[in-house]
Design a protein around this nucleic acid. Structure first.
Lengths: 160, 160, 160, 160
DNA sequence: TTTT
DNA sequence: TTTT
Protein backbone atom coordinates (compact mmCIF):
# COMPACT_ATOMS: atom_id res chain seq x y z
CA UNK A 1 0.00 0.00 0.00
CA UNK A 2 0.91 3.60 -0.24
CA UNK A 3 2.22 4.92 -3.47
CA UNK A 4 5.77 6.10 -3.14
CA UNK A 5 7.05 9.57 -3.98
CA UNK A 6 10.25 10.36 -5.83
CA UNK A 7 10.49 14.03 -6.58
CA UNK A 8 13.32 16.45 -7.22
CA UNK A 9 13.04 20.21 -7.46
CA UNK A 10 16.00 22.18 -8.77
CA UNK A 11 16.56 25.80 -9.58
CA UNK A 12 19.96 26.58 -10.99
CA UNK A 13 22.06 27.35 -14.02
CA UNK A 14 22.98 25.19 -16.96
CA UNK A 15 26.67 24.32 -17.17
CA UNK A 16 27.11 23.67 -20.87
CA UNK A 17 24.96 23.61 -23.93
CA UNK A 18 22.73 20.52 -23.70
CA UNK A 19 23.35 17.47 -25.86
CA UNK A 20 20.47 16.30 -27.95
CA UNK A 21 20.21 12.90 -29.55
CA UNK A 22 17.55 11.18 -31.50
CA UNK A 23 16.94 7.62 -30.41
CA UNK A 24 16.41 4.95 -33.06
CA UNK A 25 12.79 4.99 -31.95
CA UNK A 26 12.55 8.55 -33.13
CA UNK A 27 12.27 9.88 -29.61
CA UNK A 28 14.56 12.74 -28.68
CA UNK A 29 16.76 12.76 -25.56
CA UNK A 30 18.47 15.76 -24.03
CA UNK A 31 21.32 15.53 -21.53
CA UNK A 32 22.85 18.36 -19.59
CA UNK A 33 23.70 19.45 -16.08
CA UNK A 34 22.81 22.32 -13.82
CA UNK A 35 24.56 23.80 -10.85
CA UNK A 36 23.08 24.73 -7.52
CA UNK A 37 24.99 26.48 -4.78
CA UNK A 38 24.73 26.06 -1.03
CA UNK A 39 26.13 28.43 1.50
CA UNK A 40 27.47 27.17 4.77
CA UNK A 41 29.71 28.37 7.52
CA UNK A 42 33.06 26.66 7.77
CA UNK A 43 34.76 25.83 11.02
CA UNK A 44 36.22 29.29 11.19
CA UNK A 45 32.76 30.78 10.95
CA UNK A 46 33.37 32.07 7.43
CA UNK A 47 30.68 31.76 4.78
CA UNK A 48 31.66 29.32 2.08
CA UNK A 49 29.87 28.29 -1.06
CA UNK A 50 29.73 24.80 -2.46
CA UNK A 51 28.50 24.06 -5.94
CA UNK A 52 26.54 20.92 -6.61
CA UNK A 53 26.17 19.56 -10.13
CA UNK A 54 23.06 17.63 -11.18
CA UNK A 55 22.76 15.42 -14.27
CA UNK A 56 19.50 15.97 -16.07
CA UNK A 57 17.78 13.91 -18.75
CA UNK A 58 14.67 14.77 -20.71
CA UNK A 59 12.76 12.87 -23.33
CA UNK A 60 10.42 13.57 -26.18
CA UNK A 61 8.88 17.01 -26.29
CA UNK A 62 10.77 18.25 -23.26
CA UNK A 63 14.02 17.21 -24.94
CA UNK A 64 13.11 19.29 -27.96
CA UNK A 65 12.27 22.34 -25.89
CA UNK A 66 15.63 21.98 -24.22
CA UNK A 67 17.38 21.60 -27.56
CA UNK A 68 15.69 24.74 -28.76
CA UNK A 69 15.72 27.06 -25.75
CA UNK A 70 18.27 25.95 -23.18
CA UNK A 71 21.96 26.64 -23.36
CA UNK A 72 24.99 27.28 -21.24
CA UNK A 73 24.08 29.68 -18.48
CA UNK A 74 20.30 29.42 -18.77
CA UNK A 75 18.57 29.55 -15.42
CA UNK A 76 16.00 26.79 -15.01
CA UNK A 77 13.38 25.49 -12.66
CA UNK A 78 13.12 21.74 -13.00
CA UNK A 79 10.98 18.99 -11.51
CA UNK A 80 11.82 15.38 -11.99
CA UNK A 81 12.54 12.06 -10.39
CA UNK A 82 15.77 10.44 -9.30
CA UNK A 83 17.10 7.46 -11.20
CA UNK A 84 20.37 5.64 -10.85
CA UNK A 85 21.69 3.62 -13.72
CA UNK A 86 24.55 1.19 -13.28
CA UNK A 87 26.80 -0.79 -15.56
CA UNK A 88 30.09 -2.62 -15.40
CA UNK A 89 33.09 -0.54 -16.24
CA UNK A 90 34.76 -2.15 -19.21
CA UNK A 91 38.29 -1.75 -17.96
CA UNK A 92 38.06 -2.43 -14.27
CA UNK A 93 35.00 -4.65 -14.39
CA UNK A 94 33.65 -2.70 -11.46
CA UNK A 95 30.09 -1.57 -11.16
CA UNK A 96 29.66 2.10 -11.93
CA UNK A 97 26.67 4.20 -10.90
CA UNK A 98 25.28 7.36 -12.39
CA UNK A 99 22.41 9.22 -10.78
CA UNK A 100 20.29 11.43 -12.97
CA UNK A 101 17.16 13.52 -12.69
CA UNK A 102 14.58 12.54 -15.29
CA UNK A 103 12.76 15.77 -15.97
CA UNK A 104 9.00 16.11 -15.90
CA UNK A 105 8.59 19.89 -15.63
CA UNK A 106 10.62 22.80 -16.88
CA UNK A 107 10.39 26.52 -16.50
CA UNK A 108 12.83 28.73 -18.35
CA UNK A 109 13.84 31.57 -16.10
CA UNK A 110 16.50 33.39 -18.03
CA UNK A 111 15.04 36.47 -19.59
CA UNK A 112 15.33 37.21 -23.20
CA UNK A 113 18.90 38.02 -23.84
CA UNK A 114 19.92 36.61 -20.52
CA UNK A 115 21.25 33.20 -19.83
CA UNK A 116 24.13 33.67 -22.15
CA UNK A 117 27.68 33.06 -21.19
CA UNK A 118 28.42 36.68 -21.79
CA UNK A 119 28.58 37.01 -25.55
CA UNK A 120 25.72 39.39 -25.82
CA UNK A 121 22.39 37.86 -25.13
CA UNK A 122 21.33 36.15 -28.26
CA UNK A 123 18.37 33.99 -27.76
CA UNK A 124 18.25 34.23 -31.48
CA UNK A 125 20.11 31.02 -31.63
CA UNK A 126 17.12 29.24 -30.33
CA UNK A 127 14.47 31.54 -31.61
CA UNK A 128 15.55 31.62 -35.17
CA UNK A 129 16.72 28.07 -35.42
CA UNK A 130 13.90 26.75 -33.36
CA UNK A 131 11.64 27.37 -36.23
CA UNK A 132 13.60 25.72 -38.90
CA UNK A 133 16.97 24.34 -38.16
CA UNK A 134 17.55 20.74 -37.45
CA UNK A 135 21.19 21.32 -38.25
CA UNK A 136 21.27 23.65 -35.35
CA UNK A 137 23.23 21.35 -33.15
CA UNK A 138 26.01 21.15 -35.60
CA UNK A 139 26.61 24.86 -35.50
CA UNK A 140 29.90 25.40 -33.72
CA UNK A 141 29.21 26.87 -30.38
CA UNK A 142 30.50 30.38 -30.26
CA UNK A 143 30.12 30.95 -33.94
CA UNK A 144 28.92 34.34 -35.02
CA UNK A 145 25.22 34.68 -34.93
CA UNK A 146 23.99 36.31 -38.03
CA UNK A 147 20.43 36.68 -37.04
CA UNK A 148 21.21 39.99 -35.49
CA UNK A 149 17.83 41.30 -36.42
CA UNK A 150 16.07 38.75 -34.33
CA UNK A 151 17.79 39.10 -31.03
CA UNK A 152 14.53 38.98 -29.19
CA UNK A 153 12.15 36.14 -28.92
CA UNK A 154 8.59 36.97 -28.30
CA UNK A 155 6.19 34.89 -26.34
CA UNK A 156 4.61 33.75 -29.51
CA UNK A 157 7.81 32.08 -30.55
CA UNK A 158 7.69 29.70 -27.67
CA UNK A 159 5.32 26.86 -28.28
CA UNK A 160 4.73 25.89 -24.65
CA UNK B 1 21.16 36.85 -8.35
CA UNK B 2 18.65 34.23 -7.47
CA UNK B 3 19.31 31.70 -4.80
CA UNK B 4 19.31 28.22 -6.15
CA UNK B 5 17.06 25.39 -5.02
CA UNK B 6 18.15 21.80 -4.44
CA UNK B 7 15.34 19.82 -2.96
CA UNK B 8 14.41 16.14 -2.87
CA UNK B 9 11.17 14.67 -1.58
CA UNK B 10 10.94 10.94 -1.08
CA UNK B 11 8.32 8.66 0.35
CA UNK B 12 9.27 5.02 0.48
CA UNK B 13 10.45 2.10 2.55
CA UNK B 14 13.77 1.52 4.22
CA UNK B 15 15.81 -1.30 2.71
CA UNK B 16 17.94 -2.39 5.66
CA UNK B 17 18.47 -1.31 9.20
CA UNK B 18 20.35 2.01 9.08
CA UNK B 19 24.02 2.26 9.97
CA UNK B 20 24.93 4.74 12.64
CA UNK B 21 28.40 6.04 13.29
CA UNK B 22 29.77 8.59 15.63
CA UNK B 23 32.23 10.95 13.99
CA UNK B 24 35.41 11.88 15.87
CA UNK B 25 33.79 15.27 16.30
CA UNK B 26 31.10 13.61 18.34
CA UNK B 27 28.49 14.18 15.67
CA UNK B 28 26.38 11.20 14.69
CA UNK B 29 25.86 10.09 11.08
CA UNK B 30 23.22 7.70 9.81
CA UNK B 31 23.37 5.97 6.43
CA UNK B 32 20.65 3.93 4.85
CA UNK B 33 18.62 3.61 1.70
CA UNK B 34 14.98 3.69 0.78
CA UNK B 35 13.09 2.31 -2.16
CA UNK B 36 10.52 4.02 -4.28
CA UNK B 37 8.55 2.29 -7.02
CA UNK B 38 7.39 3.65 -10.34
CA UNK B 39 4.81 2.07 -12.52
CA UNK B 40 5.11 2.29 -16.26
CA UNK B 41 3.74 0.55 -19.29
CA UNK B 42 6.20 -1.55 -21.20
CA UNK B 43 6.20 -1.82 -24.97
CA UNK B 44 3.63 -4.55 -24.82
CA UNK B 45 1.31 -2.26 -22.87
CA UNK B 46 1.76 -4.23 -19.67
CA UNK B 47 2.18 -2.46 -16.35
CA UNK B 48 5.62 -2.92 -14.96
CA UNK B 49 7.13 -1.75 -11.72
CA UNK B 50 10.65 -0.47 -11.32
CA UNK B 51 12.21 0.03 -7.92
CA UNK B 52 14.56 2.92 -7.40
CA UNK B 53 16.97 2.94 -4.49
CA UNK B 54 18.07 6.19 -2.86
CA UNK B 55 21.06 6.63 -0.59
CA UNK B 56 20.26 8.76 2.43
CA UNK B 57 22.53 10.45 4.95
CA UNK B 58 21.57 12.27 8.11
CA UNK B 59 23.61 14.08 10.70
CA UNK B 60 23.38 15.05 14.31
CA UNK B 61 19.95 14.87 15.89
CA UNK B 62 18.31 13.46 12.78
CA UNK B 63 20.90 10.68 12.74
CA UNK B 64 19.99 9.78 16.29
CA UNK B 65 16.29 9.72 15.56
CA UNK B 66 17.02 7.38 12.69
CA UNK B 67 19.20 5.18 14.86
CA UNK B 68 16.40 4.97 17.39
CA UNK B 69 13.25 4.71 15.28
CA UNK B 70 14.05 3.62 11.74
CA UNK B 71 14.70 0.09 10.65
CA UNK B 72 14.26 -2.25 7.73
CA UNK B 73 10.83 -1.80 6.28
CA UNK B 74 9.96 1.50 7.94
CA UNK B 75 7.99 3.80 5.68
CA UNK B 76 9.39 7.32 5.62
CA UNK B 77 8.75 10.74 4.24
CA UNK B 78 12.04 12.52 3.68
CA UNK B 79 13.14 15.94 2.50
CA UNK B 80 16.71 16.68 1.68
CA UNK B 81 19.17 17.91 -0.88
CA UNK B 82 21.20 16.12 -3.52
CA UNK B 83 24.93 15.79 -3.12
CA UNK B 84 27.42 13.85 -5.16
CA UNK B 85 30.70 12.83 -3.65
CA UNK B 86 33.55 11.53 -5.75
CA UNK B 87 36.88 9.85 -5.09
CA UNK B 88 39.44 7.83 -6.97
CA UNK B 89 38.91 4.11 -6.83
CA UNK B 90 41.98 2.61 -5.23
CA UNK B 91 42.26 -0.30 -7.59
CA UNK B 92 41.36 1.13 -10.94
CA UNK B 93 42.36 4.70 -10.24
CA UNK B 94 39.10 5.75 -11.84
CA UNK B 95 36.88 8.45 -10.48
CA UNK B 96 33.86 7.06 -8.70
CA UNK B 97 30.68 8.99 -7.93
CA UNK B 98 28.08 8.44 -5.27
CA UNK B 99 24.95 10.54 -5.11
CA UNK B 100 23.20 10.85 -1.77
CA UNK B 101 20.30 12.72 -0.29
CA UNK B 102 21.33 14.70 2.77
CA UNK B 103 18.23 14.69 4.92
CA UNK B 104 16.70 17.80 6.41
CA UNK B 105 13.22 16.56 7.31
CA UNK B 106 11.85 13.22 8.35
CA UNK B 107 8.42 11.88 9.06
CA UNK B 108 8.01 8.34 10.31
CA UNK B 109 5.01 6.78 8.64
CA UNK B 110 5.04 3.20 9.72
CA UNK B 111 2.45 2.60 12.34
CA UNK B 112 3.27 1.12 15.65
CA UNK B 113 4.08 -2.44 15.04
CA UNK B 114 4.38 -1.92 11.33
CA UNK B 115 7.45 -1.27 9.33
CA UNK B 116 8.92 -4.65 9.74
CA UNK B 117 10.13 -6.70 6.86
CA UNK B 118 8.16 -9.63 8.10
CA UNK B 119 10.28 -11.06 10.87
CA UNK B 120 7.69 -10.27 13.45
CA UNK B 121 9.35 -7.37 15.08
CA UNK B 122 7.94 -4.06 15.87
CA UNK B 123 8.73 -0.74 17.28
CA UNK B 124 9.69 -2.19 20.57
CA UNK B 125 13.30 -2.13 19.61
CA UNK B 126 13.24 1.58 19.36
CA UNK B 127 10.63 2.23 21.95
CA UNK B 128 12.42 0.47 24.69
CA UNK B 129 15.77 1.88 23.83
CA UNK B 130 14.44 5.30 23.16
CA UNK B 131 13.47 5.53 26.73
CA UNK B 132 16.67 4.45 28.26
CA UNK B 133 19.43 3.12 26.18
CA UNK B 134 22.16 5.21 24.74
CA UNK B 135 24.19 2.09 24.35
CA UNK B 136 21.51 0.87 22.04
CA UNK B 137 23.75 1.07 18.99
CA UNK B 138 26.13 -1.40 20.40
CA UNK B 139 23.43 -3.97 20.68
CA UNK B 140 24.10 -6.53 18.00
CA UNK B 141 21.53 -6.16 15.35
CA UNK B 142 19.27 -9.12 15.42
CA UNK B 143 19.68 -9.74 19.07
CA UNK B 144 16.66 -10.93 20.94
CA UNK B 145 14.43 -8.21 22.11
CA UNK B 146 13.25 -8.88 25.56
CA UNK B 147 10.95 -5.97 25.93
CA UNK B 148 8.05 -7.99 24.72
CA UNK B 149 5.72 -6.20 27.02
CA UNK B 150 6.33 -2.86 25.45
CA UNK B 151 5.40 -3.52 21.90
CA UNK B 152 3.68 -0.20 21.59
CA UNK B 153 5.19 3.21 21.62
CA UNK B 154 3.01 6.11 22.36
CA UNK B 155 3.47 9.56 21.02
CA UNK B 156 4.90 10.61 24.30
CA UNK B 157 7.80 8.27 23.85
CA UNK B 158 8.97 10.09 20.78
CA UNK B 159 10.92 13.17 21.62
CA UNK B 160 10.24 15.08 18.36
CA UNK C 1 8.24 33.38 -20.65
CA UNK C 2 8.58 30.93 -17.83
CA UNK C 3 5.86 28.57 -16.92
CA UNK C 4 4.61 29.19 -13.43
CA UNK C 5 4.56 26.67 -10.60
CA UNK C 6 1.70 26.16 -8.16
CA UNK C 7 2.36 23.18 -5.97
CA UNK C 8 1.24 22.08 -2.54
CA UNK C 9 2.56 19.13 -0.57
CA UNK C 10 0.69 18.03 2.51
CA UNK C 11 1.08 15.14 4.90
CA UNK C 12 -1.51 14.96 7.59
CA UNK C 13 -4.67 13.33 8.87
CA UNK C 14 -8.18 13.47 7.54
CA UNK C 15 -10.62 15.33 9.75
CA UNK C 16 -13.93 13.74 8.80
CA UNK C 17 -15.14 11.17 6.37
CA UNK C 18 -14.90 12.69 2.89
CA UNK C 19 -17.98 13.81 1.00
CA UNK C 20 -18.43 12.36 -2.43
CA UNK C 21 -20.76 13.76 -5.06
CA UNK C 22 -21.42 12.86 -8.63
CA UNK C 23 -21.57 15.85 -10.91
CA UNK C 24 -24.25 15.98 -13.59
CA UNK C 25 -21.45 15.32 -16.03
CA UNK C 26 -20.93 11.99 -14.39
CA UNK C 27 -17.63 13.04 -12.91
CA UNK C 28 -17.10 12.36 -9.24
CA UNK C 29 -15.91 14.98 -6.76
CA UNK C 30 -14.57 14.36 -3.29
CA UNK C 31 -14.30 17.06 -0.62
CA UNK C 32 -12.60 16.73 2.72
CA UNK C 33 -10.00 18.36 4.91
CA UNK C 34 -6.76 17.34 6.53
CA UNK C 35 -4.90 18.69 9.48
CA UNK C 36 -1.24 19.49 9.76
CA UNK C 37 0.44 20.57 12.96
CA UNK C 38 3.25 23.05 13.46
CA UNK C 39 5.29 23.39 16.56
CA UNK C 40 6.56 26.75 17.63
CA UNK C 41 7.88 28.38 20.74
CA UNK C 42 5.60 30.93 22.33
CA UNK C 43 6.83 34.10 23.95
CA UNK C 44 7.48 32.27 27.16
CA UNK C 45 9.72 29.83 25.36
CA UNK C 46 7.22 27.00 25.70
CA UNK C 47 6.54 24.65 22.82
CA UNK C 48 3.08 25.09 21.44
CA UNK C 49 1.30 23.26 18.67
CA UNK C 50 -0.98 24.85 16.14
CA UNK C 51 -3.22 22.83 13.90
CA UNK C 52 -3.81 23.98 10.37
CA UNK C 53 -6.78 22.71 8.38
CA UNK C 54 -6.61 22.36 4.61
CA UNK C 55 -9.58 21.99 2.28
CA UNK C 56 -9.00 19.34 -0.36
CA UNK C 57 -10.85 18.59 -3.57
CA UNK C 58 -10.37 15.69 -5.92
CA UNK C 59 -12.03 14.81 -9.18
CA UNK C 60 -12.70 11.77 -11.26
CA UNK C 61 -10.68 8.68 -10.44
CA UNK C 62 -8.95 10.30 -7.48
CA UNK C 63 -12.35 11.20 -6.06
CA UNK C 64 -13.40 7.57 -6.27
CA UNK C 65 -10.26 6.33 -4.58
CA UNK C 66 -10.94 8.78 -1.80
CA UNK C 67 -14.55 7.67 -1.54
CA UNK C 68 -13.39 4.09 -1.28
CA UNK C 69 -10.29 4.27 0.91
CA UNK C 70 -10.13 7.52 2.85
CA UNK C 71 -11.98 8.24 6.02
CA UNK C 72 -11.74 10.14 9.25
CA UNK C 73 -8.28 9.73 10.68
CA UNK C 74 -6.58 8.39 7.57
CA UNK C 75 -3.06 9.68 7.17
CA UNK C 76 -2.38 10.97 3.68
CA UNK C 77 0.35 12.37 1.51
CA UNK C 78 -1.14 14.76 -1.01
CA UNK C 79 0.14 16.85 -3.89
CA UNK C 80 -1.98 19.45 -5.53
CA UNK C 81 -2.36 23.04 -6.54
CA UNK C 82 -3.88 26.02 -4.78
CA UNK C 83 -7.11 27.49 -6.01
CA UNK C 84 -9.28 30.18 -4.53
CA UNK C 85 -12.93 30.38 -5.42
CA UNK C 86 -15.02 33.39 -4.57
CA UNK C 87 -18.68 34.25 -4.60
CA UNK C 88 -21.01 36.79 -3.13
CA UNK C 89 -22.51 35.85 0.18
CA UNK C 90 -26.26 35.79 -0.26
CA UNK C 91 -27.05 37.51 2.98
CA UNK C 92 -24.41 40.12 3.36
CA UNK C 93 -23.66 40.55 -0.30
CA UNK C 94 -19.98 40.47 0.55
CA UNK C 95 -17.39 38.60 -1.44
CA UNK C 96 -16.40 35.36 0.22
CA UNK C 97 -13.24 33.42 -0.55
CA UNK C 98 -12.44 29.77 -0.12
CA UNK C 99 -9.00 28.38 -0.81
CA UNK C 100 -8.72 24.73 -1.66
CA UNK C 101 -6.05 22.29 -2.74
CA UNK C 102 -7.00 20.51 -5.93
CA UNK C 103 -5.35 17.13 -5.59
CA UNK C 104 -3.16 15.59 -8.23
CA UNK C 105 -1.38 12.88 -6.23
CA UNK C 106 -2.36 10.80 -3.27
CA UNK C 107 -0.60 8.26 -1.13
CA UNK C 108 -2.53 6.46 1.58
CA UNK C 109 -0.33 6.13 4.61
CA UNK C 110 -2.56 4.62 7.23
CA UNK C 111 -1.84 0.98 7.55
CA UNK C 112 -4.55 -1.58 7.36
CA UNK C 113 -6.51 -1.20 10.50
CA UNK C 114 -5.09 2.19 11.22
CA UNK C 115 -6.46 5.53 10.30
CA UNK C 116 -9.44 5.28 12.49
CA UNK C 117 -10.42 7.87 14.96
CA UNK C 118 -10.15 5.40 17.76
CA UNK C 119 -13.06 3.04 17.40
CA UNK C 120 -10.77 0.21 16.65
CA UNK C 121 -11.87 0.20 13.11
CA UNK C 122 -10.03 -0.50 10.01
CA UNK C 123 -10.34 -0.28 6.37
CA UNK C 124 -13.64 -1.98 6.60
CA UNK C 125 -15.56 1.05 5.59
CA UNK C 126 -14.00 0.95 2.23
CA UNK C 127 -13.41 -2.71 1.95
CA UNK C 128 -16.35 -4.33 3.53
CA UNK C 129 -18.57 -1.77 5.08
CA UNK C 130 -18.20 0.49 2.16
CA UNK C 131 -21.57 -0.81 1.16
CA UNK C 132 -23.25 0.14 4.33
CA UNK C 133 -22.12 3.67 4.62
CA UNK C 134 -24.78 6.26 4.09
CA UNK C 135 -23.94 8.66 1.34
CA UNK C 136 -21.66 6.18 -0.13
CA UNK C 137 -24.44 4.28 -1.81
CA UNK C 138 -24.60 6.53 -4.78
CA UNK C 139 -21.63 4.63 -5.94
CA UNK C 140 -22.22 3.68 -9.54
CA UNK C 141 -19.51 1.13 -9.61
CA UNK C 142 -22.16 -0.73 -7.95
CA UNK C 143 -20.84 -4.02 -6.82
CA UNK C 144 -22.71 -5.08 -3.77
CA UNK C 145 -20.13 -5.36 -1.14
CA UNK C 146 -20.95 -8.17 1.14
CA UNK C 147 -17.50 -9.24 2.13
CA UNK C 148 -18.12 -8.75 5.79
CA UNK C 149 -15.59 -11.37 6.54
CA UNK C 150 -12.83 -9.54 4.80
CA UNK C 151 -12.16 -6.62 7.05
CA UNK C 152 -8.62 -6.50 5.77
CA UNK C 153 -7.63 -5.22 2.40
CA UNK C 154 -4.53 -6.55 0.81
CA UNK C 155 -2.41 -4.69 -1.66
CA UNK C 156 -4.07 -6.58 -4.43
CA UNK C 157 -7.38 -5.06 -3.52
CA UNK C 158 -6.22 -1.59 -4.25
CA UNK C 159 -6.36 -0.79 -7.92
CA UNK C 160 -3.67 1.92 -7.95
CA UNK D 1 3.38 9.78 15.41
CA UNK D 2 4.57 11.16 12.13
CA UNK D 3 5.38 14.78 11.76
CA UNK D 4 3.09 16.46 9.31
CA UNK D 5 4.13 18.35 6.19
CA UNK D 6 2.69 21.65 5.03
CA UNK D 7 4.60 22.96 2.07
CA UNK D 8 3.84 25.29 -0.79
CA UNK D 9 6.03 25.96 -3.81
CA UNK D 10 5.15 28.83 -6.09
CA UNK D 11 6.82 30.39 -9.09
CA UNK D 12 5.07 33.39 -10.49
CA UNK D 13 4.91 37.14 -10.80
CA UNK D 14 4.20 39.79 -8.22
CA UNK D 15 0.95 41.66 -8.75
CA UNK D 16 1.64 44.95 -7.01
CA UNK D 17 4.43 46.48 -5.01
CA UNK D 18 4.56 44.70 -1.65
CA UNK D 19 3.35 46.36 1.51
CA UNK D 20 5.80 46.52 4.35
CA UNK D 21 4.91 47.22 7.94
CA UNK D 22 6.88 47.30 11.12
CA UNK D 23 5.17 45.52 13.98
CA UNK D 24 5.24 47.09 17.43
CA UNK D 25 7.69 44.34 18.33
CA UNK D 26 10.09 45.78 15.80
CA UNK D 27 9.65 42.85 13.46
CA UNK D 28 8.93 43.63 9.83
CA UNK D 29 6.08 42.08 7.85
CA UNK D 30 5.67 42.09 4.10
CA UNK D 31 2.38 41.35 2.33
CA UNK D 32 1.88 40.90 -1.37
CA UNK D 33 0.45 38.50 -3.90
CA UNK D 34 1.74 36.57 -6.86
CA UNK D 35 0.01 35.13 -9.85
CA UNK D 36 0.42 31.70 -11.34
CA UNK D 37 -1.23 30.58 -14.55
CA UNK D 38 -2.62 27.20 -15.46
CA UNK D 39 -3.45 26.08 -18.92
CA UNK D 40 -6.36 23.79 -19.52
CA UNK D 41 -8.52 22.72 -22.39
CA UNK D 42 -12.08 23.94 -22.25
CA UNK D 43 -15.04 21.90 -23.36
CA UNK D 44 -14.54 22.98 -26.92
CA UNK D 45 -10.98 21.68 -26.81
CA UNK D 46 -9.51 25.18 -26.87
CA UNK D 47 -6.58 26.07 -24.65
CA UNK D 48 -7.55 28.49 -21.95
CA UNK D 49 -5.51 30.13 -19.26
CA UNK D 50 -6.64 30.71 -15.71
CA UNK D 51 -4.75 32.95 -13.34
CA UNK D 52 -4.53 32.06 -9.70
CA UNK D 53 -3.61 34.67 -7.09
CA UNK D 54 -1.75 33.72 -3.92
CA UNK D 55 -1.47 35.86 -0.81
CA UNK D 56 2.04 35.85 0.60
CA UNK D 57 3.35 36.97 3.98
CA UNK D 58 6.93 37.21 5.11
CA UNK D 59 8.45 38.20 8.41
CA UNK D 60 11.69 39.56 9.74
CA UNK D 61 14.65 39.42 7.41
CA UNK D 62 12.65 37.96 4.54
CA UNK D 63 10.22 40.86 4.85
CA UNK D 64 13.09 43.30 4.52
CA UNK D 65 14.49 41.59 1.46
CA UNK D 66 11.05 41.80 -0.10
CA UNK D 67 10.72 45.44 0.83
CA UNK D 68 14.07 46.10 -0.80
CA UNK D 69 14.08 43.90 -3.89
CA UNK D 70 10.57 42.83 -4.82
CA UNK D 71 8.08 44.93 -6.67
CA UNK D 72 5.22 44.73 -9.13
CA UNK D 73 6.12 42.31 -11.86
CA UNK D 74 9.06 40.63 -10.16
CA UNK D 75 9.27 36.93 -10.88
CA UNK D 76 9.76 34.88 -7.72
CA UNK D 77 10.31 31.36 -6.53
CA UNK D 78 8.76 30.94 -3.11
CA UNK D 79 8.53 28.18 -0.52
CA UNK D 80 6.25 28.45 2.43
CA UNK D 81 3.44 26.92 4.40
CA UNK D 82 -0.31 27.37 4.21
CA UNK D 83 -2.14 29.18 6.96
CA UNK D 84 -5.73 30.24 7.19
CA UNK D 85 -6.73 33.05 9.49
CA UNK D 86 -10.32 33.75 10.35
CA UNK D 87 -12.23 36.50 12.04
CA UNK D 88 -15.77 37.74 12.34
CA UNK D 89 -16.79 40.28 9.78
CA UNK D 90 -17.80 43.40 11.62
CA UNK D 91 -20.82 44.16 9.53
CA UNK D 92 -22.35 40.80 8.83
CA UNK D 93 -21.00 39.03 11.88
CA UNK D 94 -20.05 36.15 9.63
CA UNK D 95 -16.84 34.28 9.89
CA UNK D 96 -14.38 35.27 7.20
CA UNK D 97 -11.38 33.22 6.11
CA UNK D 98 -8.16 34.27 4.48
CA UNK D 99 -5.59 31.75 3.36
CA UNK D 100 -2.00 32.89 3.05
CA UNK D 101 1.38 31.41 2.31
CA UNK D 102 3.88 32.20 5.04
CA UNK D 103 7.17 32.37 3.21
CA UNK D 104 10.27 30.49 4.29
CA UNK D 105 12.37 30.64 1.12
CA UNK D 106 12.67 33.16 -1.65
CA UNK D 107 14.58 33.30 -4.88
CA UNK D 108 14.45 36.44 -6.98
CA UNK D 109 14.22 35.48 -10.60
CA UNK D 110 13.72 38.73 -12.40
CA UNK D 111 16.92 39.93 -13.96
CA UNK D 112 18.43 43.26 -13.21
CA UNK D 113 16.20 45.89 -14.57
CA UNK D 114 13.52 43.36 -15.32
CA UNK D 115 10.44 42.68 -13.37
CA UNK D 116 8.99 46.07 -13.85
CA UNK D 117 5.48 46.50 -15.03
CA UNK D 118 6.55 49.40 -17.19
CA UNK D 119 6.12 52.22 -14.76
CA UNK D 120 9.69 53.27 -14.84
CA UNK D 121 11.92 50.44 -13.90
CA UNK D 122 13.27 51.58 -10.65
CA UNK D 123 15.25 48.91 -9.04
CA UNK D 124 17.11 51.94 -7.92
CA UNK D 125 15.26 52.11 -4.68
CA UNK D 126 16.76 48.88 -3.64
CA UNK D 127 19.87 49.07 -5.70
CA UNK D 128 21.01 52.37 -4.49
CA UNK D 129 20.18 51.82 -0.94
CA UNK D 130 21.41 48.30 -0.98
CA UNK D 131 24.73 49.54 -2.14
CA UNK D 132 25.22 52.30 0.26
CA UNK D 133 22.68 52.60 2.93
CA UNK D 134 22.90 50.53 6.01
CA UNK D 135 20.55 52.93 7.63
CA UNK D 136 18.14 52.22 4.88
CA UNK D 137 15.63 50.54 7.08
CA UNK D 138 15.14 53.62 9.09
CA UNK D 139 14.43 55.59 5.98
CA UNK D 140 10.77 56.50 6.01
CA UNK D 141 8.99 54.38 3.54
CA UNK D 142 8.01 56.39 0.56
CA UNK D 143 10.71 58.95 0.87
CA UNK D 144 12.17 60.30 -2.34
CA UNK D 145 14.86 58.24 -3.88
CA UNK D 146 17.49 60.41 -5.40
CA UNK D 147 19.88 57.79 -6.61
CA UNK D 148 18.48 57.88 -10.08
CA UNK D 149 21.87 57.37 -11.60
CA UNK D 150 22.30 53.87 -10.22
CA UNK D 151 19.52 51.96 -11.86
CA UNK D 152 21.53 48.76 -11.95
CA UNK D 153 22.35 46.56 -9.06
CA UNK D 154 25.26 44.23 -9.25
CA UNK D 155 25.47 40.89 -7.56
CA UNK D 156 27.67 42.31 -4.90
CA UNK D 157 24.95 44.67 -3.84
CA UNK D 158 22.68 41.90 -2.74
CA UNK D 159 23.44 40.72 0.73
CA UNK D 160 21.92 37.23 0.47
C1' DT E 1 30.67 23.11 -16.64
C1' DT E 2 26.96 27.39 -14.35
C1' DT E 3 25.60 31.34 -11.63
C1' DT E 4 25.58 35.04 -7.84
C1' DT F 1 -2.96 43.01 -9.36
C1' DT F 2 1.23 39.84 -12.49
C1' DT F 3 3.32 37.47 -16.41
C1' DT F 4 3.85 34.77 -20.94
Amino acid sequence: MAKSVNKVILLGNVGKDPEFKMLPSGQGVANFSIATAERFKDKGGEWQERTEWHNLVAYARLAEIIRDYVKKGTKLYVEGRLTTRSWDDKESGKKVYRTEVVMSELSLLSGRGEGDGGSGGNYSRSSSSAASSSSFDQRPSGSPDDYAHSTEITDDDIPF
